[in-house]
Design a protein around this nucleic acid. Structure first.
Length: 261
DNA sequence: ATGGCTTGCACCGCAAGA
């Protein structure tokens, strides 16, 4: 079972890439972020024709998240939950669905702009709500996977130039403390379960030839609860789509699970 | 050197991303 996450930066523009990548990767569950389209514009039929069922929540211009599930998997359609229950927010950033007894969450964490700004305060409030909600979800769903664009680079080794980035948005101590708190809840950063080469990132700035210079950050993550972590056999970043024509600035992160039974 | 690309929306420039 292959689980993946990809911030596509407009599903309208990136649909061909998504279809190509699904066909070549044979991913079972793909979490998408930054759809940037309303629900009536979601390409349900195209994905259905490619063999995937779609669960999504979108809005005009910004945000929007989805979970694509390869047909044949056991999906409880009544289990779909949009956003963080109890956290009033017009921004569509979270969707959850149960696939083969596993709770899958696709999340687009707020960017935060810069410490000290209103957007940063919103990010911290959102992160607090996420943690409270997740503690409860982990009790309800022992098998839980949180995938998405976290907009947090957890450690200096996840940053191309830690000195230049020190204290800035995406790497600040407040944000990293939240990521650490998620791990303390029992979640595992699946990428770090395995030996990895240095300087592997999931996002590169469009400007200043960021990708060619490998001036990137690892901010897209797949976290699993203990009952799932024991079944994770691999996690990798597929940087190939970042090199395609008219790419997203993010590239897919993939985890492979050997599900018992 | 606070820009530099890319997207969407609405218009010929802006906000937002990270």
């Amino acid at each position: 079972m292959k689980l993946a996450t990809w911030n596509v930066n407009s599903l309208k523009v990136r649909l061909p890439h998504v279809l190509d990548w699904l066909a070549s990767s044979q991913t079972d569950v793909l979490c998408l972020q930054e759809l940037k389209l309303t629900d009536d514009k979601f390409p349900v039929a195209e994905l259905e024709a490619a063999g995937y069922s779609s669960y999504f929540t979108g809005q005009k211009t910004y945000n929007g998240v989805a979970i694509l599930v390869k047909q044949g998997h056991d999906v409880d359609a009544t289990s779909v939950v949009r956003n963080i229950p109890g956290f009033e927010d017009p921004q569509q950033r979270v969707i959850s669905v149960t696939v083969s007894g596993m709770r899958v969450i696709s999340a687009y964490f707020p960017n935060g702009q810069a410490p000290g700004t209103e957007k940063f305060s919103y990010k911290l409030a959102w992160l607090a709500a996420l943690q409270t909600w997740l503690r409860d979800e982990l009790l309800r769903y022992p098998k839980l996977a949180l995938l998405g664009d976290f907009n947090i680079a957890p450690e200096d080794r996840d940053v191309h130039d830690p000195k230049a980035w020190e204290g800035q948005n995406l790497v600040s101590p407040e944000e990293r403390a939240v990521f650490a708190a998620l791990l303390e809840m029992g979640l595992s950063d699946t990428f770090r379960l395995f030996e990895q080469a240095d300087k592997l990132f999931s996002w590169w700035d469009y400007r200043m030839m960021g990708f060619r210079r490998n001036a990137g950050l690892r901010i897209d993550h797949i976290l699993t609860s203990p009952a799932l972590t024991s079944q994770v056999v691999a996690c990798s970043i597929d940087k190939v789509p970042r090199g395609w024509e008219q790419p997203s600035d993010h590239t897919p992160v993939v985890a492979e699970l050997k599900l018992a039974g």
